[in-house]
Design a protein around this nucleic acid. Structure first.
Lengths: 157, 157
DNA sequence: CAAGATGCTCAAGCTAACTTGAGGTCAAGT
DNA sequence: ACTTGACCTCAAGTTAGCTTGAGCATCTTG
C-alpha cells in the first residue's frame, strides 16, 4: 500500500500510518513547526523519509512528559533536512536522559513516601512526607501541575 | 491570621493558603466533588480541618500524574466527614504505590533506551528501542499521551 | 458607621494537543 | 466521463484544570 517513490517521499497518509498518528495530527505537527513538507504539483504534502524519525522523537518526548514546545526546542537542534549526526543525536539524548532521570528520582521519593505511609499510619498531617513534600512551590501557572513541573525541568539542567 | 474556630472549621481563604492552592481552585475542587463544605449564616464556606488532608492527597495524586477524576475515585473510598482509618488509608496508598512503581518502570525503560542511543548511534530507525517501544498502542483518545497512559493505568492493577 | 478585606455566583477565557466538520480539489480506476 | 478515495483549507469543538472578570453580599476594624 505505501507507494515507494524514487525520491523517498511519503504521502501524509503513509507517514501517519507508519508513525502511528492520525493524519490531522501530522498536519498539526507541521503547523507547529515540528516537521516540514514540500508539495506536489497538485498541492499535496510530501514528507522526506526521515520525518519518521522526527515523529518518533516527538513520541519519545511525549513519553518523557515533555510539551510539544519543549520537543520542538529539542528538534530545532536537529537538522530538518537530513539525518542527524551521531554527535547531534547524542547531545539531545543526553539532555533528555537527564530529564528522565530527574523525573524518576521525584517518583521514587514519592514512592517511598507512600511506602512510609502504608506502614506508619501517619494520618496526622505535619509529620508525613507525603503531605509535606517541601519541594512543591506554591504559585505556578495554569495547567497540570505535573506537566508544568516536567516542562520546567526540561532543557535547563 | 488563620482564625482558630472552636469547631475546627476553616474559611476558604485559610484553607487555600494552608493547602497551597488558590481560592478559586478550592471552589473548583468542591464543585468537582473532591471536597465538601458547610455554610455559615452568611453563606460562606466552612471546611472541616481534615479537608487539608484531602487536598494533600489531591496534590500527591497530581504528582503521581493522575487526573482529578482518578483522584476523586480514590478519595471516594475515604470518608468525607472524618479522618480515614489506618486500614482505609493503607488501601489507597498501596494502590497508588503500584501506579507509581509502574510509571517508574516505564521511565526506566525509556531511560535505558536513551542511554543505548547515546552510545550506539543507531540513527537508522528499525533497530532502536527508543523508536520502537512496542508497547505504544496506536490509537487512543485526545489529550496528552503521557497522561492518558498514566490515567489508564490507575486503579486497575 | 464607613471602608477595605474577604467571600459569593455565574460566565467566560485560557493552554495544550488534538479532533471534527464543512466544503472543495486531485488522481486513478472502470 | 464519472465515481471514489485520499487530500486540501479553515474554522470550530473538546477535555483537563484552572484563572479571570463582573457585579453583589458580608464581615471586621478603625
Amino acid at each position: 500500500m505505501p507507494h515507494i517513490t524514487p525520491l523517498e517521499l511519503l504521502s501524509i497518509g503513509d507517514l501517519a500510518r507508519r508513525a502511528g498518528v492520525s493524519v490531522p495530527t501530522v498536519r498539526y505537527y507541521e503547523q507547529r513547526g515540528l516537521i516540514q513538507s514540500s508539495r506536489t504539483a497538485g498541492n499535496k504534502r510530501q514528507f522526506p523519509r526521515h520525518t519518521l524519525r522526527r515523529l518518533a522523537v516527538v513520541a519519545a518526548g511525549q513519553r518523557v512528559g515533555l510539551t510539544l514546545q519543549s520537543i520542538n526546542d529539542a528538534l530545532a537542534e536537529l537538522p530538518a533536512d537530513r539525518a542527524p549526526t551521531q554527535r547531534e543525536w547524542r547531545h539531545m539524548s543526553q539532555i533528555w536522559a537527564v530529564t528522565v532521570a530527574r523525573r524518576i528520582r521525584q517518583l521514587e521519593a514519592l514512592q517511598s513516601s507512600l511506602d512510609g505511609c502504608i506502614g506508619c499510619g501517619c494520618l496526622s498531617l505535619g509529620k508525613c512526607t507525603l503531605f509535606n513534600p517541601g519541594d512543591e512551590a506554591a504559585a505556578e501557572g495554569p495547567g497540570s501541575r505535573w506537566l508544568r513541573r516536567a516542562d520546567a525541568v526540561a532543557f535547563m539542567p
